[in-house]
Design a protein around this nucleic acid. Sequence first.
RNA 1: GCCGGGGUGGCCGAGCGGUUAGGCGGCGGGCUGCAGACCCGCUGACAUGGGUUCAAAUCCCGUCCCCGGCUCCA
Length: 486
Amino acid sequence: MVLKIFNTMGMKKEDFIPLREGEVRIYACGPTVYDFIHIGNARAFVVADTIRRYLEHRGFKVFFISNITDIDDKMIKRSQETGLSIQQLGEIFSDAYFEDIAALNIKKPDVSPRATQHIPEMIEVIRKLMEAGYAYQVDGDVYFDVSRFEDYGKLSGNKTEALEMGARIEVNPKKRNPADFALWKARKEGEPGWHSPWGEGRPGWHIECSTMAMKYLGETFDIHMGGKDLIFPHHENEIAQAEALTGKTFARYWIHNEWLTVEGQKMSKSLGNFITVKDALKICSPQVLRFFLISAHYRSPIDFNRESLKLAEANLERINSAMERLQGLRERANRTSEEENLLSEVRDARSKFEEAMDDDFNTPLAIAAIFNAVKAINSYADKNAEIEALTKREVYETVKDLMGILGINIETRREEYAEEKTTIINELINLIIDVRQEMRRRKEWKISDEIRERLQKIGLTIEDSPQGTRWKLKKIQDLNKFSKHF
RNA sequence: GCCGGGGUGGCCGAGCGGUUAGGCGGCGGGCUGCAGACCCGCUGACAUGGGUUCAAAUCCCGUCCCCGGCUCCA
């Protein structure tokens, strides 16, 4: 089976063939560290991470770069607002960024290059672009001359002439063509600056990604990704800079994820519906947030709201509890046809999962395949209290693997539970359950039910079954807090 | 004005020419003292008007809505 990827360049699905066999080099646009990352950023990062994990699962050696923008207009503005230096801002919020992505189980990039640590490289790229006649200097600014680069607009489908028509901002009179963009900006009063052949100044936004991508991944690499808003102008400009310089294809596959909305609307500061990852994690667990983010295909819009979070939580719970039931089955040596059956269902789920992911990373379809396995497990556990040991292991490991590709760690929950179950509280709960069992034996239903209800209220769910009474901690957060938080 | 993406059953969400998507909910049944969890069955859909085809949610044309990019933004 070939892996197919929808390439923004050309707007169609293509077979994925890496430049070097068995290796994939990826550049994903990272955060500007002027604030905490929000759940829209989280979607982009989770999508990138899931793609990375799947490629690794498929046996590729993946080299994954994601930059940190620590100097640009937003950084300067925020620094002036807060009184913190740009370096301090960068440190605070890049730490927060790493904390947030760790919570979401996003693997750290192999390199997280920072713009401010690559100024000399950027100056060098700009210098070469000027030498080749692709850029011009006006006062202390340097602009890229879009008219010199024939392919300008090939990614976004924008035509240079059309861009002028729709321009909603005043045209900078220094530019030869309104579509020209800054490679280097002269330092203004109160701004940081670096020495350059054009005087003190700082790099434009787009040049950092072209420069750092080429430095770490080479002039041509496999995948470049980010949110769809970056298609124009950011990625278009990256292509112009890099390809004007090298004459070679910059990135071979462009992947862009759709937007996340909040209760039907685009997130924005002015609407007051701007939700950071840290805020979101006050009302749901990181696993639920991640599961929610991949429950729609990455090229479809997704809406963050109470209902969709609840749904994600319920779905994840279904998977987790099937895994716990499986774990709870006693092991035995011989295999029956029931086990054969279970195994074939689970193996089938695995290949369906892979098929789905091979088709442009169709995570919702892949999740549906996991549900097939879940149903088979529940079905088995309904009829059997025992299972052949190797079957149990294979079934467990398969589901765990597949969930792991999606970045959801099944073990995490088990570990949390295990920890809590070893405490003295565990004994207390067992004591209460034993007392309730005795009441039930005496058919004292009223008091039995009251015990169950009161435990439920404090977040402890009791489930009676022919095999005895099970209890579990209710991890579900109070989603009624939703509107209070936002 | 120029580009682009959509409208699928009560809800979320795949499919994009012929085969049950999946989950949540609802209804019926099983298990249970009851409840929950779980299992089985049922329910129910392709915005709209034309067209192409043996066959269309899927392709083509028109219409109506929604959303995004062209400006910092994942």
